[in-house]
Simulated scan of single mutants.
Amino acid sequence: MRDRDALEASEQGIRAVKLSFAVLALTAVLQLAVALVSGSAALLADTAHNFGDALTALPLWLAFALSRRPPSRTHTYGYGRAEDLAGAAIVGIILLSALVCGYESATKLLEGSGVRGAGWVALAAAAGFAGNELAARLRISVGRRIGSAALVADGQHARTDGLTSLAVLAGAAGAWLGYPVVDPLVGLGITAAILHIVRDSARPVWRRLMDAVEPGTVEALEEAASGMPEVLRVEEVRARWTGHSLQAEVRVRVEPDLPAGRLGDLSGRLAAAARKRLPRLERVLLEPVPDRPGDV
């Protein structure tokens, strides 16, 4: 049942990625056409960023597709880790877009350039905001539903990008009022905002790659195990994410003369109790150790 849930979650993730990719790609193409005609550095920076956002869908798409494959004798935990690697690729793509934005904006600030068609630039900026907000809502809602930290983070990133698209309006307004220098300055401001996103996005990705779990995860497993009447004490708890599924290992001390029947269903009851607080918990490996006199 849990495997079927994981497959359905991956399918939902793929659908969300496909739709958000289409929305952001169309938005970026429209913005690029206006940016090339108008010469707006701010809009070009925002366009490069939106192209980067669209490309972040590709590693996520591949990761969700891989996660549907069953475990094998060589990949005994399955392929869920591909989702965490996709998160690292996303951070790299965002960083590349920041470098492109910064270079183009600095060049136009030093060499000077005018902005043509400020009204069209403003409309393109509004389109960028709308496209990013639509993609953000789709990714965040699906990501929260299936428990994908990578998809939620990518959606929050898209929402922030929508705000940077609105900042392009300031560059258009400056050009319309006769201050074209505002445009590359806004482009540099967008670059700084993207670098801030890189930093914030890298933190959760790094934590997942290093097998970190959220505060309260270990405590929830300890409390669930301690609540079992057969458990005398909890000795060790380990947990880690593989994609959008949580895996755990729990070692407990049990009564030395515990009947085999009660011992057999202890793991299932522990998993059921823990999932009340950890709904994305896929499986728990329970290691019951009989309590012997003299054991520490």
Rank of each mutant, 00 (worst) to 15 (best):
R2S: 08
R2Q: 06
R2N: 14
R4E: 15
L7K: 15
E8Q: 14
E11T: 02
E11P: 03
Q12A: 01
Q12L: 01
R15H: 10
V17R: 00
K18W: 06
A22W: 08
L24D: 12
A25Q: 04
L26R: 09
T27N: 03
V29F: 07
Q31V: 02
Q31W: 01
V37L: 10
S38A: 06
L44G: 07
A45Y: 13
N50Q: 14
N50P: 06
D53C: 05
A54G: 01
A54C: 06
W61M: 02
L66C: 01
S67T: 12
R68C: 10
R69L: 13
T76G: 09
G78E: 07
A82Q: 09
E83T: 01
A86P: 11
A89W: 08
I90L: 12
L95V: 14
V100L: 11
G102P: 11
S105C: 14
T107F: 12
K108G: 07
E111C: 12
G112L: 05
R116M: 07
G117Q: 01
W120N: 07
V121I: 00
L123K: 09
G128W: 10
F129H: 00
F129M: 03
L134T: 08
L134D: 07
R137C: 11
L138H: 05
I140R: 09
V142C: 03
G143K: 02
G143I: 06
R144N: 05
R145G: 11
R145H: 15
R145C: 06
A149L: 08
A150L: 08
V152K: 03
A153F: 13
G155L: 02
Q156E: 12
D161R: 10
D161T: 05
G162N: 05
L163T: 11
L163Q: 04
S165L: 12
S165E: 14
S165D: 14
L166C: 00
A167V: 12
L169G: 07
L169F: 15
A170P: 02
G171F: 03
A173P: 15
W176Y: 07
P180R: 06
G187W: 03
T191D: 04
I197L: 07
S201G: 15
S201K: 08
V205K: 00
R207Q: 04
M210P: 05
V213L: 14
P215K: 00
V218Y: 15
A220C: 03
A224S: 01
P229G: 09
E230Q: 09
V231W: 06
L232E: 04
V237C: 09
G243Y: 06
H244T: 10
L246T: 10
Q247D: 00
Q247T: 06
V250N: 02
R251H: 02
R251C: 04
E255S: 00
A260L: 15
A260I: 12
G261W: 07
L263C: 15
L263S: 13
R269E: 12
L270F: 00
A272F: 13
A273Y: 06
R275L: 05
K276D: 04
L278F: 03
E282I: 08
E282K: 11
R283C: 07
R283S: 15
V284Y: 02
L285N: 06
V289R: 10
P290Q: 01
D291E: 10
D291S: 05
R292L: 14
D295M: 10
V296L: 09
V296M: 12
